[in-house]
């Protein structure tokens, strides 16, 4: 009714201008690659979220079965979510039945609202809703502040389904196994194993080339890396960086870094040193091994310190 009034067209025009304003630079659809048959991945850039990369810093993608599609992570903005959705539609018209959020971090979850129109089941770790309650609004505000126009329209989606142990998703002739991990990278890490291709989408349980971020438990993560090494998979999909040619070498590099942080912090703790002393001295030999070391290493040492001081 309202659109038939003379003001209607003007409103529509204004809305369209608004939409065009935050159209992402990657145009309509993310350029996906197939990590394995039917497993589509777009690698985020190995940078800190910024207007130049529009927050597309995490690996996101989707898996296509005979009857349904499962989206895995949604990017750092609503616009990135839309671009991922467009990429799905370039590949298939099958319904997007599931959107899996691998953990609470903004570069993975903030595009979720782009899929609400598909009415999928949004799925996360049993701790994800609580983590979103504690951090989601902060992340959304920071995305708007840090990314500006690129983050317009970004809003939170709290998953309606949670996984505490494991769960299977049937995509039609293809089964995904979801697994809720004990506290490691975060306290809400969820991984996805595609049995058909042996692809284990670990998301941020594994960082390749980019410095791992400790936001759950350093010791828990080290334990989980051993579990991961024993898991049956032909390839691992990390949350950041490329699919590693040698899965064990990628895990070993991450383990080496985490162990160096743990050993260094324990040494500082043994002489009753402070966080400040630990931050200035621990793990610096790892500097050349990781992208974005200067952005996250001191933070990792801080997190490790407040965990290990209770040992």
């Amino acid at each position: 009714m309202r659109l038939s009034t003379p003001r209607g067209p003007l409103l529509i025009a204004l809305c369209c201008v608004g939409l065009l304003g935050w159209r992402p630079a990657w145009a309509d659809a993310l350029p996906m690659t197939e990590a394995a048959p039917g497993v589509y991945l777009d690698q985020g850039v190995q940078e800190v979220a910024a207007p130049e990369n529009q927050g597309h810093i995490a690996n996101i993608g989707f898996i296509v079965g005979n009857e349904r599609v499962a989206v895995i992570d949604t990017g750092g903005t609503y616009a990135e979510g839309l671009a991922l959705r467009a990429a799905v539609r370039r590949v298939t018209d099958l319904p997007i039945a599931y959107v899996i959020l691998t953990h609470v971090h903004p570069d993975h979850v903030l595009g979720a609202a782009a899929f609400e129109q598909d009415r999928p089941e949004f799925i996360g770790h049993a701790n994800l809703a609580d983590a979103l309650a504690r951090r989601g609004e902060h992340y959304r505000e920071r995305a708007l502040a840090d990314l500006g126009e690129a983050a317009e329209g970004t809003r939170l989606v709290v998953p309606g389904s949670s996984v505490a142990g494991t769960r299977e998703l049937d995509l039609g002739g293809r089964t995904l196994e979801l697994r809720a991990h004990p506290t490691a990278h975060t306290n809400n890490d969820l991984s996805i194993l595609d049995r058909q291709t042996g692809t284990w989408w670990l998301s941020d349980l594994l960082f390749v080339d980019r410095i791992p971020v400790i936001d759950g438990s350093l010791l828990g993560w080290l334990r989980e890396l051993d579990t991961i090494d024993q898991g049956p998979a032909l390839r691992l999909v990390p949350g950041h960086g490329g699919v590693p040619a040698d899965r064990y070498a990628a895990v070993a590099a991450q383990r080496r870094y985490l162990q160096a942080v743990a050993a260094g912090v324990r040494a500082v703790l043994r002489r009753q040193g402070t966080i400040e002393e630990a931050v200035d001295s621990v793990g610096l030999a790892e500097s050349g091994n990781w992208l974005l070391f200067d952005d996250y290493h001191r933070r990792n040492v801080t997190a490790a310190f407040v965990e290990l001081e209770w040992e």
């Binding site: 570069d107 504690r134 951090r135 992340y139 306290n187 936001d215 759950g216 438990s217 996250y296 933070r299």
Partner: peptide, 15 residues
């Protein structure tokens, strides 16, 4: 302020 995914809240509330 800190960058990235840092937030002024608990890492593991249950723990």
């Amino acid at each position: 302020a800190s960058g990235g995914c840092s937030a002024p809240s608990l890492k593991d509330p249950a723990a």
